[in-house]
């Protein structure tokens, strides 16, 4: 469960958000430049809000009143980006296990085998990222994020770099992910249709204001 209430100013742009995100896929749509990526970077800890607080599963990630600040590596927020950002010097297996090097939140996270089955990536394990297709890369990136045992998963336009056929190929995996784990997922996209089959809740960002979208 993510609770967030903040305002953030960058130059003349102001982002305002008061929201709660539970299990399932919460879609955030809105035109580019509306503040979607800014919102994600605030949750991930890549930037600090001007004022406000973010609480994840009862743990305060940031609170400007009490000057609380958790750095990105202690937030347990998994992220998947438009470009997969896999580590080019590691093979798929070592990319997947990267988050495991740092403990995560105890040992009760998904196992490597579970993730390999969920995402059908067994044949890819020994390959390097540059030898994967775009869709395969995104599957590995999702697996890598899940194996770090996050309390929240941020998907930032995860299908945007893929052609329609690859998008369709990846969608069932995202559905499985939604139904198979109780993980809250925040899915950012500028195309409503893309996430229509996935979303269980909708948010809309327009000119820096986040509202619940019915």
């Amino acid at each position: 469960m993510l609770d967030l209430s903040l305002t953030h100013r960058i130059g003349t742009f102001t982002l305002t958000a008061h929201l709660s995100i539970g299990p399932g896929v919460t879609a955030i749509t809105g035109p580019s430049g509306a503040g979607k990526t800014t919102l994600l970077s605030l949750i991930a800890g890549l930037s600090r809000p001007s004022a406000g607080r973010i609480v994840l599963d009862g743990k305060v990630l940031v609170d400007t009143d009490s000057r609380t600040w958790l750095p990105p590596h202690r937030r347990h927020v998994g992220q998947v980006f438009q470009e997969a950002r896999l580590f080019p010097h590691l093979n798929v297996r070592h990319n997947l296990l990267y988050g495991r090097l740092f403990g995560g939140r105890g040992r009760d996270g998904p196992t490597l085998d579970t993730i390999i089955d969920l995402l059908d990536i067994a044949p890819l394990l020994r390959r390097r990222p540059r030898d994967l297709s775009g869709g395969e890369r995104q599957r590995v990136a999702i697996g890598r994020a899940l194996l770090s045992n996050p309390a929240l998963l941020l998907l930032d336009e995860p299908l945007s770099a893929l052609d329609p056929a690859r998008k369709a190929e990846l969608l069932p995996y995202l559905q499985r992910l939604r139904d198979g784990t109780g993980l809250p997922i925040l899915y950012v996209t500028h195309q409503r249709e893309e996430v229509a089959a996935l979303a269980t809740a909708w948010l809309r960002v327009e000119q820096g204001v986040v509202t619940v979208d019915q």
């Binding site: 991930a44 990105p72 202690r74 950002r85 580590f87 988050g99 890598r144 994020a145 770090s148």
Partner: peptide, 8 residues
């Protein structure tokens, strides 16, 4: 940044 997001 991705590495930090994975807990590093």
């Amino acid at each position: 940044d991705a590495a930090a997001g994975l807990g590093a």
